[in-house]
Design a binder for these strands. Structure first.
Length: 544
RNA sequence: GUCCCCGUAGCUCAGUGGACAGAGCGCGGGACUUCUAAUCCCGGCGUCGCAGGUUCGAAUCCUGCCGGGGACACCA
């Protein structure tokens, strides 16, 4: 079902078009723009139609706007618009029409905000996919929050979404993890390692794994490969556990090892070769990705016969493509930026439309404490893990701050701000609004069933009604534009509108049936706050 | 050198074709005998990096330049 807000937009646009036609002004339907005003004071909805008609009508926008306004008939959605600026039409929605949103929200409950935009199409969302060679770090946390909320948003917008984690549990890095294990075991036997080899994971967590290896009664001298495989699985399981604590659950953990063992790598190579996109040159085999716009061709089989990392990755994507989703989304870290071209090329070389795969870059996270960036060095094995961050600030603030910025812009995460329990911290500001409403509901007598939402005419009440009406469209847009950061913005505004309403007006002991109407409004606001925070994976406390 | 992201209020950032450019924080004042003051109200804060161009209209689109960050392996 279409949102009330969207219906208002369409009905006003239709009515405007009809008036224009009656004046003999023809214009393409999609040229009519009805949208929220850039600032309050310009009504609830505004239209620029007069500007668009200026050329056709050969009259100034102001005069056209006057004509359109004067011919506005009695209409259930809005009164005749006011003409503002140089020809904007500012509409005020009818209270009766707007107030009906309260019942709509209360009837739909936790479903309110859903739309059919996705039309049941299937999407596969792959995110985080960190190597199982260490704990998840803060940047992985951002990808986790963004990916998970994007999945929830798309589900709300009518998509079927699967969440997948690609586990790089084979290859070189697992070899190095095995070496690190072997060295730590050597240390535990009392033989210090003089020089730690380049590229072998220096992190102290490997020592913990080595100790566990011994504690579980395994031999101190073991094959590097076996050590690597064992450690990778332990670390992967720990990552899964940490993500669950962070509120992120995957539908599938896809193993690179399994992929390699299935022969998928050979298969994708021969498929590309057969199609003529993989050719031999200077002893190596090159993927002709430049044909599809990549910067340069890419080696897949090195001159020594071994594969580059791109081979299993190509096999993985071929697998995902073959599974028949309508859309694949990869959330990658900024270090994979250079990867985008060859992935897009691969999709097309395998015979799929270019837009079947959508690659999004989730930008870096910089932790800031006391106004200074926290030093992190992966090289030294010193980095802040997701677990440490969550221990310090909690899941709710962590998710909020990760989701607050557009995913493709670098994020400064203010550790001090995230821990403040005051109005400076937007998480609590929104949660507090919800807690206040819950408190209100606890104090309320059994709600009288009869009220008229048309009594809600105060400006503070209208602001809330408008917010409620807009919510489904906010969700749909956030899903469509892959922009989870619309949620915290919207919720902060709605919470602010509620706090203001609450300070200015009595609810429970308002006169007559107004009390019931206001209580219903408050309940509807709570429904939307809960849904919005739920989409962000943030809790809604009963008391604060 | 090529590619990507960013440059908007003191700070952190919204806003990608519409009205005199917005929010939060910070700063200064004020509001609880009444449903949660983790709240609310009032106040100042701008060469939208620079220069051209397109448009009735540009922070937004195009071109060039400047500044910051990142990516550009027969590594993974």
């Amino acid at each position: 079902m279409k949102s009330r807000y969207l219906r208002a937009v369409e009905e006003i646009a239709q009515q405007l078009l009809a008036i224009a036609r009656s004046q003999g002004w023809e214009i393409a339907e999609d040229a009519v723009l009805v949208q929220p005003p850039s600032e309050p004071g310009h009504g609830d909805l505004t239209s620029n139609l007069a500007f668009r008609l200026a050329r056709v009508a050969r009259r100034p926008p102001q005069a056209i706007a006057e004509t359109l306004a004067q011919n506005w008939p009695e209409h259930p959605v809005a009164d005749a618009p006011e003409v503002g600026g140089a020809g904007f039409l500012n509409f005020r929605l009818k209270t009766l029409w707007l107030a009906a949103v309260v019942d709509e929200v209360l009837e739909q409950g936790p479903q309110y905000g859903n739309s059919e935009e996705g039309k049941g199409r299937r999407a596969l969302l792959e995110f985080v996919s960190a190597n199982p060679t260490g704990p998840l770090v803060v940047a992985n946390g951002r990808a986790a929050a963004v990916g998970d909320t994007l999945a929830r948003l798309m589900e709300a917008a009518g998509w079927q979404v699967e969440r997948e984690y690609y586990v790089n549990d084979a290859g070189n890095q697992i070899q190095r993890l095995g070496q690190a294990m072997a060295l730590r075991l050597q240390e535990l036997r009392g033989q210090p390692v003089a020089v730690w080899p380049e590229g072998v994971y220096p992190g102290a967590y490997v020592r913990r794994l080595a100790e566990r290896w011994l504690a579980e009664g395994r031999p101190a001298a073991a094959e590097v490969e076996e050590l690597g495989r064992w450690a990778a699985e332990v670390l992967r399981a720990e990552q899964e556990e940490e993500l669950l604590r962070f509120g992120v659950r995957y539908d599938r953990w896809f193993s690179e090892r399994g992929l390699r063992e299935s022969g998928a790598c050979e298969a994708v190579l021969s498929q590309l070769r057969a199609a003529g996109w993989l050719v031999e040159e200077e002893g190596a085999q090159w993927f002709l990705s430049t044909h599809w716009g990549d910067d340069k061709n890419r080696v897949m089989v090195k001159s020594d016969g071994s594969w580059t990392y791109f081979v299993p990755d190509a096999a993985y994507h071929a697998d995902k493509l073959a599974r028949g989703y309508d859309l694949l989304i990869d959330l990658l870290g900024p270090d994979h930026h250079g990867y985008l071209g060859r992935l897009k090329a691969l999709v097309q070389a395998l015979g799929y439309p270019e837009d079947r795969l959508e690659v999004r870059i989730v930008q870096l996270v910089r932790l800031v404490r006391g106004g200074e960036p926290v030093r992190m060095s992966k090289r030294e094995g010193e980095f802040v893990t997701l677990a440490e961050l969550v221990d310090e600030v909690g899941v709710d603030p962590a998710r909020w701050f990760f989701l607050e910025r557009a995913m493709d812009t670098p994020l400064d995460f203010d550790l001090d701000l995230a821990q403040l329990r005051t109005n400076e911290n937007p998480v609590y500001y929104v949660q507090y609004a919800a807690a206040r409403i819950k408190s209100l509901l606890r104090s309320a007598e059994a709600p009288s069933q009869t009220y008229s939402a048309a009594e809600l005419v105060e400006p503070e009440e209208r602001a809330l009604l408008l917010g409620l009406a807009r919510f489904p469209e906010v969700v749909a847009e956030a899903a469509r534009e892959r922009a989870p950061h619309y949620l915290p913005r919207f919720l902060t505004e709605l919470a602010g509108d509620f706090h203001l309403f609450y300070r200015r007006h009595r609810i429970l002991n308002a006169p007559g049936t107004l009390a019931a109407a206001r209580l219903a409004l408050a309940r509807a606001v709570l429904v939307v706050l809960e849904r919005g925070l739920g989409l962000m994976g943030i809790s809604v406390p009963d008391r604060m």
